[in-house]
Design a protein around this nucleic acid. Structure first.
Lengths: 146, 146
DNA sequence: TATAATTATCTCGAGTTCGAATTAAATAGA
DNA sequence: TCTATTTAATTCGAACTCGAGATAATTATA
């Protein structure tokens, strides 16, 4: 099974490279709006999912909780996010996107989505589907192992 | 084509998430050896490909050239890398792994490879192959567009 | 009920990363 | 040949990230 192991390592290299290349493209793109990639990721998840607790955001974006605190503070300063304490559990805070934040996302998102789509348009329909499903399996597997 | 676009975005989310999860796993793993993920990536490429110029390393790892300088300086301090000026073009420097660096890699690599392989062992053979190929296509596409 | 353990978030310091500007060397063009 | 342009690597400051430990609140247990 040497071949299979070899393929895994190559898949991993390709995964890392693809992710990094897309990251660079996104960074350049949203830089115009004065946002970092992490800030954009947080804004995007709040935009699509509604208000979330700090730790839910942390779990979605997979950054350290101290980084989550930091990023949300930056977004609050920019007026894109509001933080509100849970009335029941006062340890917990919800972060939600503001109207201004929503406006920015409505401005950026179409272009952002189009860019992402253009990256994947080199794949056949079924190839794209397999890619997506395989990645989901692997990320679930990684979470299980850790 | 709404569906296809939707799938692209989901593939991208899955890609980012998978990459981040693996990154965290690797970070934990090589932390024991006092190496950062970037340091390990540089060491790995020098280990497998032999001496390379600073900018070749930068292109492989996809980090800023200033970061490349920084990381290689750290690796030199640790005694894992040596830097040598090109005799023909004196602007250019080659970085190569030292015997000590090689020893460390021989120590880490089998475990590292096994971990990566375990992440991908949830996929069928052909699924893994498609994943690898699709990722290669996408990363090439991204490089073309940028 | 009082104390212990757990959980959510934050603070802080150290190390890493980027991007812009700089230096030094090589190449191209007048 | 002299100057301009390009290229490789570095320096520098600002911003970001992590991990460890602290704080505050909740839940479990004696």
């Amino acid at each position: 099974m040497k071949d299979r192991n070899e393929t895994s390592l190559k898949a991993f290299i390709a995964l890392k490279r693809t992710n990094d290349a897309i990251d660079i493209a996104i960074r350049k793109d949203i830089r115009k709006y004065g946002l970092s990639v992490t800030e954009f990721a947080v804004l995007e998840v709040l935009y699509t999912k509604g208000p979330l607790t700090i730790q839910t955001i942390r779990d979605r974006i997979l950054i350290a909780s101290s980084s989550t605190t930091y990023v949300i503070e930056r977004l609050i300063e920019k007026g894109y996010v509001l933080k509100e304490q849970d009335t029941k559990d006062r340890r917990t805070y919800y972060a939600g996107i503001t109207d201004e934040g929503r406006k920015v996302m409505e401005d950026i998102f179409p272009m952002h989505a189009a860019m992402i789509q253009s990256f994947f348009d080199c794949l056949e329909e079924d190839e794209l589907e397999t890619l997506k499903e395989a990645l989901k399996k692997v990320s679930a597997r990684v979470s299980n192992i850790i």
